[in-house]
């Protein structure tokens, strides 16, 4: 994926050379049997799950490293595979569609997902700080935008009253009385 910003240790953000590729192996253009290695491949979760449930999946396909999931899907369905995944990609089909913020919070807070969580799609500078606070730690900036400019969006506003994935204590528990 191009234009990827990665945040390490919640602090250092940098533009990275990224090797992950989203591959819809169940589309017309691909066949699962043509895929030799799942290394660095992000597999769309919904068609994969359908194939898995039908029992037609070749065994090595259970060895998935990364899923992307629609913003209308229930992230709880990822639960059985969380231990083997390295990356989960959440989708912003439009930046005004905020469902993936909630998915991120669920993954981090309830499902205990510790691995990389990436925002993909209509990912823009002015929303990055919100995404970061909801638990995203990598961002595939929309292709037509300059990722170096987008980096500036990560800082956002320093004060947040409510708690977040990044800061689990709300301000009222931290405020100096």
């Amino acid at each position: 994926m191009n234009n990827v910003i990665s945040v390490v240790n919640r602090q250092q953000a940098q533009l990275v050379e990224d090797k992950w590729q989203i591959l819809d192996v169940f589309s017309e253009h691909h066949k699962p049997q043509d895929v030799n290695s799942l290394d660095q491949l992000v597999i769309p979760f919904e068609p994969w799950l359908a194939a898995y449930n039908s029992g037609l999946l070749q065994a090595y396909f259970e060895d998935i490293q990364a899923f992307s999931i629609d913003n209308s899907s229930d992230v709880n369905e990822l639960k059985p595979w969380l231990n083997q995944l390295k990356l989960i990609v959440l989708d912003f089909p439009k930046f005004t569609d905020g469902r993936a913020y909630t998915q991120a919070v669920e993954l981090r807070r309830y499902l205990g997902w510790q691995g990389e969580l990436r925002a993909n799609g209509d990912v823009l500078r002015d929303q990055l700080s919100h995404m970061l606070r909801c638990g995203f730690d990598s961002f595939a900036i929309r292709e037509d935008k300059d990722p170096n400019e987008a980096l500036k969006g990560l800082s956002g506003i320093s004060v947040l009253y409510a708690n977040s994935v990044l800061e689990p204590q709300p301000l009222f528990r931290r405020r100096a009385l």
């Binding site: 905020g98 909630t102 919070v105 919100h130 995404m131 909801c134 947040l160 977040s164």
Partner: peptide
Amino acid sequence: RQWSTINPEFLFL
């Protein structure tokens, strides 16, 4: 007011 202000999960409802 405080809780809802720039609460990041709920800005694109």
